[in-house]
Write a protein that binds this DNA or RNA. Structure first.
Lengths: 358, 358
DNA sequence: GTGAAAGCGCTAACAT
DNA sequence: ATGTTAGCGCTTTCAC
């Protein structure tokens, strides 16, 4: 049904090899011939068949990306970075997002299946032993995003540092009774953020009471939800010594916590301050203080790293770690205080908000 | 390098055809043979090569999806619906998102390239003549999402109805001076929402003054941004007769409008009411009254429709149109008024919020 | 600069 | 139930 190089070759009075050379770019073909071939191809509406080319070249010009779920601002931005980088290099992007927890491994398997893609990006997936083995056996070039393993290239944010920074920020502002809200303990990022947070508190000569920590057991989206944050804050408020500042290890939870506060007629930050992690879009809108991850850049970096690994499979494994950036908004400091404490800080905050809303 | 059916065939003492049959499912193979083949394949770590299979079958089991941009809650939900449906049918998803306006057509071309995918989903792309021709010539099964054209299957929301409903809601609440904020006039959805909105106003025996309409000329994201809404609301507030209720044709703009209101020390809804369109995540969070599009369902429906068209290319073209659903929150009615007007409405609203935040 | 020919790994008649 | 064989459309040595 479709037109092939044979059709072109015949009409142009050349061999299929020549037509192939014309469309493969590099090779040397007489200018006259090249032109003639292009012209005829244009007339006939010829396009090289992708599958045939992939089979012959033993390469697909496709990269696949595996995600635990589709619905998250974080993933969207990462994908955007990936997509932009790949498009520039003329690669296409196959997206595999899990729907349920068990479904993820099915998706992973498809993604790494032989001949499907030249490389694979694995995002935010804890590498349990079985999964790890699957990946190691696949032999496909692979880079990890938002997780780390010594055997694979990776791009991630320094979660420990982020947690540490969050605690330092609260300590410096003079808050006394810290609270901590965490998503499901399975994924590493939450655990790491907690580690940094607790370290800073220890270093300040204080301690985090067990009753001030709420860990979600929500399997829904590993607790990365507004609801889980809402529940968590309610629980913390019910404790004997409610906190005066809480670190929610992801912005979704922080937003839920904020909601719980306002439902309880408590003011943020004067009654309870809140700091999140991620800097999702809504955070800028509601003025949530948080630690920003450079999501788009992480996507780009991961794609670039993968492209490099595809070129030279033997290069040493490398890990790119970004530092989370503290964005101070209104949930840890009242606007008036900001101006009084830091000269011109108000102006900075305003600009922050505008750009963050972009 | 990789293991092929030849390796399996040899070790199992059968022909490659038998091995192929085993892995292609359907055909009848002796149970003993099948088992033996599976066992050996397992040992050798065999996986069918995707490109070879695609070439031989003349089908890829891949669907590609083209989007104007990656960064939008709407697209994300649509993609999720698409992905879920495709995964169930064992299809993979290739995502092409434009980065700049001109880039979109490059992406479109790749998406419909011969042999790349068995079908294509085109989302939110105005079909200018050149683009239209490209699609018609490609011969690939295709369905449109969030836009309509007589030549192609499509899935969309009834924007005219949505605009109409928005106006009716405001009229019934007793608002007098309507304002209208629109994204860039190029994409059809905005124009259609305006049409419905103005019709309802005409039918109510009133008219919409030209000075009460603000159309964004922002090319950035076709004006689907918080900033464009912010600017728009500021402009409307500066008019001789500022509106007491405004319809923003997308939620991003509505959020910007809300921000402009609060920056001007105006209360919503008592000074100016605001109603949006889309029901993005943040809208639920800030209590924005809006018209919800069933994004996930639209994605699913589109994918299903595409799968059907791929099965029977000659079926008549069909269009699925969803009705937008009015979600009343706090930007058009004060909570107290809701309870006084509609019995039990408060409870409904609360439930709405919880589920919408999910 | 161009052509001939041997694959790439799998599928699908057709034959047995 | 299984084997033989001719492709699928393109790339890529190797000659000339």
């Amino acid at each position: 049904v479709a037109v092939t190089i044979y059709d072109i070759a015949e009409r142009a009075g050349v061999s299929i090899a020549t037509v192939s050379r014309v469309f493969s770019g590099g090779a040397r073909v007489a200018d006259k011939t090249r032109e003639r071939v292009f012209k005829i191809a244009e007339e006939l509406g010829y396009e090289p068949n992708v599958s045939a080319r992939s089979l012959a070249r033993q390469a697909t010009q496709v990269v696949s990306m595996v995600l635990p779920t589709m619905t998250s601002y974080f993933f969207m931005e990462v994908i955007r970075g990936v997509q932009d980088c790949l498009a520039e290099a003329n690669y296409d992007l196959l997206v595999y997002a899990g729907r349920t927890a068990d479904n993820v491994d099915t998706q992973l398997s498809r993604a790494v299946q032989s001949g499907r893609a030249d490389g694979v990006l694995v995002c935010s997936l804890p590498l349990a032993p079985a999964r790890l083995e699957r990946l190691q056996n696949s032999g496909v070039p692979l880079v990890l995003v938002d997780s780390i393993h010594p055997d694979f290239d990776s791009v991630a944010v320094n979660n420990v540092e982020g947690g540490y920074t969050a605690a330092r920020h609260l300590i410096e502002l003079g808050y006394k009774r810290m609270g901590l809200i965490l998503p499901h303990p399975d994924p590493a990022p939450g655990r790491e953020r907690r580690e940094g947070f607790e370290r800073a508190i220890r270093e300040a000569g204080r301690r985090l009471d067990a009753s001030a920590v709420y860990v979600s057991d929500d399997l829904q989206q590993h607790g990365y939800t507004v609801e889980s944050g809402y529940t968590a804050m309610q629980a913390l408020l019910g404790r004997a010594q409610p906190p005066d500042a809480v670190f929610a290890a992801c912005d979704e939870q922080a937003l839920g916590a904020l909601k719980a506060l306002s439902d309880a007629n408590l003011d943020c930050p004067s009654d309870v301050a809140v700091i999140g992690f991620d800097n999702i879009r809504t955070s800028a809108y509601v003025g949530l203080t948080t630690l920003a991850q450079p999501m788009y850049e992480m996507g780009r970096a991961a794609a670039e790293k993968l492209l490099q690994r595809m070129l030279s499979p033997d290069r040493p494994v490398s890990h790119t770690v970004f530092s989370p950036r503290l964005i101070i908004r209104e949930t840890t400091v009242c606007p008036s205080e900001i101006t009084s404490r830091e000269n011109g800080a108000e102006g900075v905050r305003a600009r922050n908000d505008l750009s963050a809303l972009a």
